[in-house]
């Protein structure tokens, strides 16, 4: 199966390791991975901050770049939700843009959706002998309704002990530009989430969104808490050979 990787601008710029992990994981599972080099950003930051015109330009670029693929895989629940949930609201019904969105949006998958629903695999052959807790990010949980897909994938990783996270469904406080527009509330939410994470006694906090992990990881690092953050893809890509 030939899939296009939508890396997302945050991962591309700050977390290339996640992209590499997705490539190696998908190839291990028999996919041919393409990286359309013209891709940039889904436009979420602009749209959600109130700069709709800029966001729409980026969305148009996205639909042009990813048109024609059978499947587009993004290691981000948030960016996948942007395309699937919000793009249809940005276009005028009946317009050319609407047709382009209708063609591309349904083929965009968050990584765990793609693995479980399209490739129909839960045991991806990973090995990761650590205590891990999983934070379901808001857009994965309430936007894409990923449900227990990530947990199913993680629970089949050999050596991995998955520890439930108390109050897992509560927002971590990142919220895109919310993190800098309302820093006090964002930090308070982050601190509560981190307290719950530390209470589990894990070594690794995992999520399907590096933007939330950047906020939580930044909070953990500031506290010198000793808990690492890792994207779901990076854990799933680790094998006995590579780990």
């Amino acid at each position: 199966m030939r899939v296009a990787l939508f890396i997302t601008c945050v991962n591309d710029t700050l977390f290339p390791g996640t992209g590499k992990a997705v490539v190696s994981l998908l190839r291990r599972l028999g996919c041919e991975v393409d990286f359309p080099a013209a891709q940039t950003c889904c436009g979420q930051m602009h749209v959600n901050t109130g700069y709709r015109a800029d966001g729409v330009r980026l969305a148009r670029h996205f639909t042009e770049v990813f048109s024609g693929y059978d499947a587009v895989v993004a290691p981000s629940g948030s960016c996948a939700a942007m395309v699937r949930e919000q793009y249809p609201k940005l276009v005028r019904p009946g317009s050319r843009g609407a047709a382009a969105v209708a063609e591309v949006a349904p083929k965009v998958y968050e990584l765990s959706e793609f693995l479980v629903d399209v490739l129909k695999v839960e045991d991806v052959g990973a090995y990761f002998p650590h205590r891990v807790t999983y934070h379901p990010t808001c857009h994965s949980l309430r936007g894409l309704r990923l449900g227990d897909r990530p947990a199913r994938l993680l629970s089949r990783v050999r050596g991995l002990e998955l520890v439930p996270l108390p109050a897992a469904d509560e927002c971590c406080g990142f919220g895109g530009t919310f993190a800098v527009k309302n820093p006090a509330v964002s930090a308070a939410m982050g601190a509560d989430k981190v307290r719950n994470v530390l209470g589990t006694g894990v070594e690794v906090l995992c999520a399907a969104d590096n933007s939330c992990l950047m906020h939580l990881g930044g909070t953990l690092d500031r506290q010198k808490a000793g808990v690492r953050v890792m994207h779901l893809a990076e854990i799933l890509a680790t094998t006995e050979a590579t780990g």
Partner: peptide, 10 residues
């Protein structure tokens, strides 16, 4: 006020 939310959707 429209920014008083992390858009978490709860």
């Amino acid at each position: 006020l429209p920014y008083a939310s992390s858009l978490c959707g709860a």
